[in-house]
Computed example of a mutant assay.
Amino acid sequence: MAAIVKADKVCYLATIGGGCPDEYQCALTCSTCYRGVGKVASYCRAGGGGFPYDSCVCAMSDGAPCSPSEQQCVPAPKQSKSQRSNLQNPPDQQAMESIFGLVGDGFAVVAADTSAVHSILVHKSNEDKIMVLDSHKLVAASGEPGDRVQFTEYIQKNVALYQFRNGIPLTTAAAANFTRGELATALRKNPYMVNILMAGFDKEAGASLYYIDYIASLHKVEKGAFGYGSYFALSLMDRHYHSGMSVEEAIDLVDKCIIEIRSRLVVAPPNFVIKIVDKDGAREYAWRESIRDINVAAA
């Protein structure tokens, strides 16, 4: 059964009966309400009687039609776990990229491919995906190009604004938690399809590395990776990584990961950039190039 309630410029349709055990199924149900006009949002409304949720609520706003005759939503069909997994994790730009990093003795190193691709096209092979956040922090990001650039620049400017206002820089942990908070806020509105490895060095805490994915999960790690290249990088780091690595050992392990990705991955990017952060600051360490961009005159 469905109950329609009209409020100021917003219409709420609650699908009652059967409960709302899954917010994803509720979103699928409300998606059938959309008629190409306005906005349709969904959420599960808490109920009682021993049930965690009682109804799936669809909120139509900004001119979305809301009359019983034309706005009758139908329940979403049940889907298998594999079908849901494919819908929730579609193959996209994030998986085509490779970024990884690790923490050594007093430093952290991150590496990223430098390919700018779309679909089956490679636009350039010298795209730097590791941003210097401030003097002692690095952000390696993968994801949709627009989201990646816009979000990392947004974080960079807000970190700089905090230091300008307060006279002290954010610690790496504080910057990571701020980044996670912004992703979590955007997740319910207009999510950024960005995965991030944040590396930094603090006088008290030393070097650290934070893993932040596009659904705002945050973990402090000693090694991490994103993209298809992570299948090879993580396995190699599991085998060869140990705490207290020297810079030479860490770079040798990074090179092993790059060689493995190039030789085993069918969509392997040719070029990588490596950056390091320690007590002396964040800086570029090296490029690993197998091809170079060449400017060719138009025919």
Rank of each mutant, 00 (worst) to 15 (best):
A186P: 02
E248I: 07
A95F: 11
K279V: 04
V132K: 07
P52T: 06
A108Y: 01
Q83P: 00
D128L: 08
D252A: 15
F272P: 02
A140E: 01
F107V: 04
D278Q: 03
S119R: 12
G49I: 08
T172R: 03
A2G: 05
G49R: 09
D22G: 06
S135K: 04
A186G: 01
S142A: 15
Q88N: 06
K220E: 15
R148C: 02
E127L: 13
Y192D: 00
Q88F: 03
G48D: 09
A7D: 14
V296S: 07
K78V: 07
G206A: 12
Q25D: 13
M1Q: 10
A64P: 01
S125G: 09
L13V: 15
L133Y: 00
G106V: 06
A141M: 01
D293Y: 08
V117I: 12
I196V: 14
L234N: 13
E127Y: 10
L121Q: 08
G146L: 08
E70W: 05
A7M: 12
R180Y: 06
W287D: 12
G229T: 00
E260N: 13
A7F: 10
I215T: 12
V273H: 01
R264F: 05
A173M: 07
D62F: 11
L236T: 00
K81V: 11
A233C: 09
D54R: 10
A298C: 12
T15K: 06
V5I: 13
D280S: 13
W287H: 14
P77D: 11
Y214K: 11
Q93K: 15
V159Y: 01
R239W: 08
L218Q: 07
L102E: 00
A14P: 02
K78D: 11
L138T: 04
A199M: 06
K203C: 02
P270M: 07
D92T: 12
C66S: 12
K81L: 14
P191F: 09
S98Y: 04
D147S: 14
K6D: 08
M60S: 04
F226M: 09
P145D: 08
L87Q: 14
L87I: 15
S263V: 06
A141V: 05
L170K: 01
H242Y: 12
R239C: 09
H123T: 03
G19C: 08
K39H: 14
G49K: 10
G17C: 07
I99P: 04
P75M: 06
K78C: 03
A95V: 13
G200Q: 00
A184K: 12
V40G: 06
I261V: 15
A108R: 00
A233Q: 00
D255W: 07
M198I: 10
E289C: 11
T29W: 02
A3E: 15
A250K: 03
R264Q: 15
C257Y: 06
Y214M: 13
I276F: 02
I16M: 11
L265Y: 09
F178R: 04
A27S: 14
G17L: 07
S230W: 06
A76G: 14
I99Q: 06
S125A: 14
Y34V: 05
Q72F: 08
K39Q: 15
Q88G: 02
M237G: 00
